[in-house]
Design a protein around this nucleic acid. Structure first.
Lengths: 205, 205
DNA sequence: TGTACATCAGTGAACGCGCGTTCACTGATGTAC
DNA sequence: TGTACATCAGTGAACGCGCGTTCACTGATGTAC
């Protein structure tokens, strides 16, 4: 072939798994740059990687598996980032830790709007019932709960913590989502102010 | 034709506009039953109405115009509903009016999840800049602002009202959106409790 | 009253597109004897 | 050391699909003279 297509040179023996990562990276790139999940096509991914479309089937069952792998990783990274941010902030106390976590949450969403959408978009209205119990969203919920619970003196589990954590996370999501998707001008600073307000409100009851 | 297709009998002279409404109704039905905006196809709409696909072009410029008409109407109905609910509740005072409005907001979202998604889904990340100023979302914002401002004694405009209204609406959106799209079991009652909490928090500062 | 014509409200067939997926294949690299 | 074969990492062509949109048309209803 003499035309301008970049074509990837095949992996060597035993390094087939490398392509799998390249595919995921390319898919993430496409998604982050210009896509909704529904618009992400195998052929586009293949083009981005520089391989033929059928090659994807060597590494993924089908389109659905590619997307779900992508999503799962996004959640994993998010939870890791949130926990790390909280830990860093917590040197000034648990409340500072929670605050650092909300800030990081806002920043991640603003910097990766489409990834955020992939994880929390309402488009995902109908989730198969069987997947509910093991859904990665529970990890996120757990991270919020831990951070909220740490702000209370006394180590005992309290049922109110779950409510507060949910309320804080959900309303924070609302603020972030609206900032991302509506014509209302909400800059980074305004967003952080709103997040701080929510934090105060949630903890001062 | 002898097969089972329902075929609509053509409108009579001067009643061409009727089909336009039928198309919109069918599109709304499809959207409400099983769709995301992106999945709504002209051909499916035509099938639902019982006409040929090209007939839609007699009433809409293209797919985009159909969808935007649909969306605009959804906003109009929403704002009308919210204002009406507030008015009914306001016989017990402005705060009861605001409370009635938040309840109506929750109810509308829960009962029409896909319509809610059409209006407030994050998928709509990039809106053309020219449309921003006249976007129907401003009507919704205005409705919230009016309801919040009425809860304060004194008729003078206060800049804080806008902040509070935004915070209330946005966080309410977050709660609703998460209830609609995540595996967390949030029933109607839990949702209303969270909404009440937000209302209290927003007004008690 | 008749009739030619205009207008309205549509239709059927076709276009080109990108898609997910399947199929039989190819060429390089390793392994058994 | 040679050679037959297995395995790996892919490819090219084709399938059938539904889509948005365009085009030239049709048949019923109205209007001018």
């Amino acid at each position: 072939m003499t035309d301008g297509f970049k074509r990837r040179t095949p992996s060597r023996w035993g390094e087939g798994g490398v392509l799998r990562e390249e595919i995921l990276a390319a898919a993430a790139r496409l998604l982050a740059e210009s896509g909704r999940e529904g618009d992400l096509s195998l052929r586009a991914v293949a083009r981005e990687v520089g391989i033929s479309a059928p090659s994807i089937y060597l590494h993924f069952e089908d389109r659905a598996e590619l997307v779900s792998t992508l999503t799962r990783r996004a959640y994993e990274r998010l939870v890791g980032d949130l926990r790390a941010a909280r830990e860093r902030g917590a040197v000034d106390g648990p409340r500072a830790g929670l605050r650092a976590m909300t800030r990081r949450y806002c920043a991640l969403a603003l910097d990766n709007p489409r990834l955020y959408r992939l994880m929390f978009g309402i488009e995902r209205i109908e989730v198969p019932r069987e997947e509910l119990a093991s859904h990665p969203l529970w990890w996120v919920a757990e991270a919020w709960h831990d951070a909220v619970a740490a702000c209370r003196p006394g180590a005992a589990e309290e049922p109110g913590d779950r409510r507060v954590a949910k309320l804080l996370w959900f309303s924070l999501h609302g603020v972030v989502a609206m900032a991302l998707s509506t014509p209302f001008q909400v800059d980074r600073q305004a967003l952080e102010e709103m997040a701080d307000d929510l934090l105060d409100l949630a903890l001062t009851r």
